[in-house]
Write a protein that binds this DNA or RNA. Structure first.
Lengths: 227, 227
DNA sequence: ATTACCATACTACCATACAAGTTTCTCTTT
DNA sequence: AAAGAGAAACTTGTATGGTAGTATGGTAAT
């Protein structure tokens, strides 16, 4: 009688697994901009058929992370400066609004999570564990959005900021300023605790727009990674 | 010798055509929330195989417009109030920022396009051509974003505001306030021409958040369309 | 040496076949 | 009549085959 859900509590299709794996590699620059991605090649690599590979390409193409040229090939998208600038604009606007909301009301649980995150950041900083810091940085901002019930906003924004992340990653290859980033994170949390909207937003704006001027230099240095 | 691009200046795959057609129908409520979409059915309807249908579903699922239940079926997503609220938040923040940018500098060509758009709005208003007004409204805001070189921001935002559009469409089925919408559009353009940032942003904020309170009533009236 | 041409080996796109899980209906049993 | 078991008709997920367009490399003609 009762159909009810019989299974699949956390079923993840091959398509989604491939999508996530590729996306991670593209954003982290494990796969460099401009690299050719053949359906057959990837199918062989992941030991699956072309179908789930293709469908993951469809998703990545929608986000602009790969470029599909019909009958010619699929490339990891080059870094588009226009996209990077817009991603920064979007992030700047939204993150500032979020942090002001956070000043008005933020769950106690979230504050604890933020503190915990900051502790881990400090640790990773001492250990110079760059990859993990990158993840913690992402998580820090995601926590702020989640804390004011704007998870979907974060997710949507992330579709564009993926491009920004790629340029950030490129920049951080030879220029570490994690110390400053960490300190700004601390200041932001402190301002939130004081409910000091103005300061929090000001630091956030500075925080997001830091490194804005380096983009042209990166383009000079790695011209073949840019569109 | 010269490989060059031999063809396909504006080739659109079946997948993309199906995607666009379905998306339009979902947002315009031609296909109602909760409707079952079978791959086989759609394949028969569009007279193509399941493959391009499936791939269009993948895209729609990524935007949250359809919900794929493995081995069970694919549904047009119900309207999620949380998504609608967040879409409104995101739009409010970004549109206000955009209109302020527009006050600072906007291409003359864009201003003309806006004026032309407003004329058409007025005409459609008199003719009560609702569907076309809806399109013109979209175009009006898209023009503002394009005028300050934030097309990608508009496109990314649209991924979330599609959900908002659906609730707006539902609301407009029995409640026409296009006159007010048109007047606000006029005021916004006038403020931009005066380079009056404050007023422009204020009206825009009001413009975006109009109808915010109706969502609960809609949920009451059409409960089976909501999640 | 250079150019034109053609065969070949790619590519992604679409169609189809098979697999595995879910729902629904029917028939049997009580 | 009600309930349970099982077959059949769905569903989406994955694999594979065929097609058309593109890039490449070799060959022949100039």
């Amino acid at each position: 009688m009762k159909p009810i859900f019989t299974s699949n509590i956390a079923y993840r299709s091959v398509r989604d697994q491939v999508y996530e794996a590729l996306k991670e590699q593209i954003i982290s620059l494990s796969i460099l901009p401009g690299t050719a991605l053949s359906e057959n090649e990837m199918a062989a690599e992941f030991k699956v058929s072309r179908t789930p590979i293709r469908e993951s390409f469809v998703r990545l193409a929608q986000e602009g992370l790969v470029q599909v040229l019909p009958q010619r090939g699929t490339l990891v998208a080059l870094i588009d400066r226009e996209l990077v600038e817009e991603a920064r604009f979007m992030r700047s606007q939204l993150e500032c609004a979020i942090v002001e909301l956070a000043c008005q009301s933020l769950a106690e649980a979230t504050l604890q999570q933020l503190d915990h995150n900051l502790q881990q950041q400090k640790l990773s900083l001492e250990q110079e564990n760059v990859d993990y810091i990158f993840k913690l940085d992402q998580q820090f901002h995601a926590l702020l959005f989640a804390g004011v019930n704007k998870t979907n906003t974060w997710n949507t924004m992330s579709l564009l900021t993926a491009h920004l992340d790629r340029s950030r990653k490129l920049r951080l290859l030879d220029n570490y300023d994690w110390q400053q980033i960490y300190e700004q994170h601390v200041e932001i949390v402190e301002a939130i605790k004081r409910k000091d909207c103005t300061t929090a937003a000001a630091i956030m704006k500075q925080h997001i727009n830091r490194g804005q001027d380096d983009l042209a230099a990166l383009n000079e240095k790695y011209p073949h990674y840019f569109a």
